[in-house]
């Protein structure tokens, strides 16, 4: 049994079939990229993986537990999730750490590995560039120390150098399972598995 299993998943919006009988099996520690043109359902699939959206049919299971009303809380406790376009309306990184109950000191190493200064945690998000915000929030999510990371376009605001730093950091965590959507070829090239929608 795979660590994350997607079995016969179908989803449509009205007459538009986003995907039919989708099957994906992800082993523990694998880094997976979901790719496809815009509108093919990449974000929809991530929303279903996190239980925000329901499939029309099929099942999703994490570590043997099928995602449903009774299991959703436990499954979400396994996940670290970073959405695309991070507009969280929070003041700064420290506030986000506080909300997620993360000790800021515990993520200094991630922040530095991503090429940022730890002082960025206290800086207003409105003063950070898109790339700095994305790296800072990624470091915060890594601080949750969850076994599964779900990342929606994790490199969308990053330059080539920052992408490599992110790849180096995440790929150094061998036990970490990553499910990501991407349009970036460097990221895709490093992934163990590519799923084309």
């Amino acid at each position: 049994m795979a660590f994350v299993e997607i079995n016969n998943l179908s989803k449509s919006f009205g007459n538009n079939k986003v995907f039919t009988d989708l099957n994906i099996f992800i082993e523990k520690g694998q880094k997976v990229a979901i790719k496809g043109e815009s509108g093919k359902g990449k974000t929809t699939l991530l929303r279903m993986l996190t239980g925000i959206s329901n499939p029309d049919s099929g099942t999703i299971s994490f570590d043997g537990k099928v995602l449903g009303d009774d299991t959703v809380k436990g499954i979400r406790s396994l996940i670290g999730y970073l959405p695309q376009g991070i507009d969280l309306l929070i003041d700064n990184g420290n506030q986000l750490c506080n909300l997620l109950e993360i000790e800021p000191m515990s993520i200094y190493n991630y922040i530095e590995a991503l090429g940022l200064n730890k002082k960025k945690l206290a800086q207003p998000v409105s003063e950070l560039s898109g790339g700095e915000t994305q790296r800072l929030f990624t470091a915060i999510i890594l601080g949750l120390k969850r076994p599964i990371l779900i990342l929606d376009e994790p490199t969308s605001a990053l330059d080539a150098n920052s992408i490599l730093k992110l790849i180096n950091l995440i790929w150094s965590m061998h036990e970490l399972t990553v499910i990501s959507t991407t349009h970036n070829q460097t990221w895709e090239k490093h992934c163990d598995k590519i799923i084309e929608l």
Partner: peptide, 22 residues
């Protein structure tokens, strides 16, 4: 209007109580 923040907290393992507190 700010579902992103709610879902961000919820999907990162916080309880609904924590996610709605802001």
């Amino acid at each position: 209007n700010n579902q992103n923040l709610y879902y961000f907290l919820l999907l990162n393992g916080k309880s609904k109580k924590v996610a709605i507190s802001p």
